[in-house]
Design a binder for these strands. Structure first.
Lengths: 341, 341
DNA sequence: TTGTAGGCGTTATCAT
DNA sequence: ATGATAACGCCTACAA
């Protein structure tokens, strides 16, 4: 037996209760034009009594705006995703927007269906988090409808798609400088089992900072190799001129620490370790007293939503968007002077 | 300059292109009634050519159904939340529903505003994840509108609110039995820094299983104490009759392992350790060869969405919902025979 | 300042 | 089987 839903209270109900016309009721609530004070009060009272809330679908139909932000994840896997959702949601909600979240679960074959779904929903703006492959086909309907589309990804933007990314260069440079000041000459950036991770984006930061500070920057990744963290750490330390410092994704921080311990290396006496983290792990990192480059991905989400809202209002930005000032260098007990050679 | 959006293609455009009326076009697409084969083909072709997608807001207005599931989080913090969103989203999308996600960010003062927002959206069903406090006030509008509301929480349901939870008793009992078979007599369940965690829900499972298997079950939590994991582990092991096995939330698994190592205890020779995890950590756990009680929270999300969709169709269930069969006992190298006293 | 009426895009009812 | 038409709830010219 299909449930027959009680009809929710509508603006007409409010108008009747207040003894005015729907348009007056509407104006009293939207404040588009002035209404007589006493009438406005009566309308507001009626709203209160009846528990009226405007139907956003109807309003959206009329206004050609659904007050919905579409967030598309290629995959929903890291705690960073959570913070992004949280930050996006916070900013969206403040602006009276809602957040429609979807995930392709790593499957590109899902894209078409998911994008069509968003288009059917008539989201007012679209944000893609680490999407893969060519999107132009999927994005065409949005472009035609004038829906601003954003992507967090490594490739630059293109017509109909603005790329948005976080700039962590300041904190990264500070970290490199701090290590240089401690006498370190060789630093290895460690990214294990990751293909499209922030590690890739951070490359230029570190390269530039390393060059300026006179530190040699190497990288190790196991993305194709299938080696364990411990094997990679061991291999790296067995090289002729081994690094004296590591930069590590925080999700592998403890693995690397354990690997170093197992190899008989003390931190920070023999090796310094810097974690690349986000604020979600901040408390953990502090408990560990770890030195970290901290990225506030909650705030990043907020800022991303801000950019989306702005684009809905005034059209998409003319250039790709870089977001600054969200990362901090936090020294900690896992770094120390470079060991004497 | 406010952007003037190009008008997206509507059903009328399709009808014109196909040379039929809107009603025929609508019928051809919804399949409500049969239309002549050639006309249906022409309509489908027009849809293809024009890239038409029905406006869900308009459809929702007409159908009094928005095809939207509202998911409310008290806080968006654990990786489990991510899996839940992912699973909910997968099931929702299959049913052509979208997922509206919101988080109170741990702040009960946000509830009213967030619930009103969902109500304005006219979500078809509502799911609350670990909500706090009294919800009846917030839920009243949904109840009046006949919107099924669910909550994942410890307290039982009430009128207008169905409680949904996962039943992990089978796997938990298996774990206890496995430990009993290995000769363990005293087991401590360890929950650090958590108030409303699954640890609380698991109590009865373990209590019953322990009683049946003849194992004494204790619990340690630091929720108010502010002790470190290591201090708690040390204190527990210093008791007159120390436990020979621990059950630990996976997020603290490595902390407990490290604490045991620091205390000179070998795993599993001196102490056995069982992790309580979810499938997100499964690969990690396997790499660690850890013995775990694994919960598939992605699948849990799917099932939750299924319950919501069913409730939209046929009204809310008459009783609170327990979801079974989503947890597995996975033995591993972190358990072994109890040490001889 | 207020009310009347039209329309947003869709589906369902009613004639044809 | 098809087409005209009303209705969903809201906002906004336009008229009063």
């Amino acid at each position: 037996m299909a449930t027959e839903r009680p009809r929710p209270v509508t603006l007409l109900d409010v108008a009747n209760e207040a003894g005015v016309s729907v348009s007056t009721a509407s104006r009293a609530l939207t404040g588009a034009r002035r209404v007589r004070g006493d009438l406005e009060r009566r309308v507001r009272d009626a709203v209160e009594n009846l528990g009226y809330r405007p139907n956003e679908a109807a309003r959206g139909l009329r206004m050609a705006r659904t007050m919905t932000l579409g967030i598309f994840f290629h995959r929903l896997n890291s705690p960073v995703s959570l913070d992004l959702i949280d930050g996006l949601g916070a900013a969206a909600h403040e602006a009276r927007y809602s957040l429609a979240v979807t995930s392709a679960r790593g499957d590109k074959a899902q894209y078409a269906s998911l994008f069509q779904h968003f288009y059917g929903q008539r989201v007012d703006a679209l944000m893609m988090i680490w999407p893969r492959g060519d999107l132009s086909g999927h994005l065409a309907p949005f472009a035609r409808a004038g829906v601003p589309a954003f992507a967090m990804r490594w490739l630059p933007g293109e017509p109909g798609l603005t790329v948005i990314s976080a700039d962590n260069s300041v904190a990264s440079t500070e970290a490199v400088n701090a290590l240089a000041a401690l006498g370190h000459k060789r630093l290895t950036i460690f990214s294990h089992g990751v293909l499209w991770t922030p590690a890739t984006l951070r490359r230029p930061y570190f390269d530039r900072a390393g060059e300026a500070a006179g530190i040699e920057i190497r990288r190790r990744t196991s993305r194709d190799s299938g080696f364990t963290v411990r094997e990679l750490v061991a291999d790296e330390l067995a090289s002729p001129e081994p690094p004296t410092a590591f930069v590590v994704q925080y999700s592998e921080f403890s693995d690397v620490m354990a690997a170093l311990a197992a190899l008989g290396k003390r931190v920070p006496d023999d090796v310094s370790v810097v974690g690349f983290t986000d604020s979600k792990f901040a408390s953990t990192a502090q408990r560990d007293q770890a030195a970290v480059i901290d990225v506030d991905s909650f705030e990043l989400g907020r800022r991303m939503a801000g950019v989306m809202l702005e684009a809905i209002e005034n059209g998409p930005p003319s250039e790709d968007v870089r977001i600054h000032g969200l990362s901090r260098w936090i020294p900690g007990g896992t770094i120390g002077p470079a060991p004497k050679a």
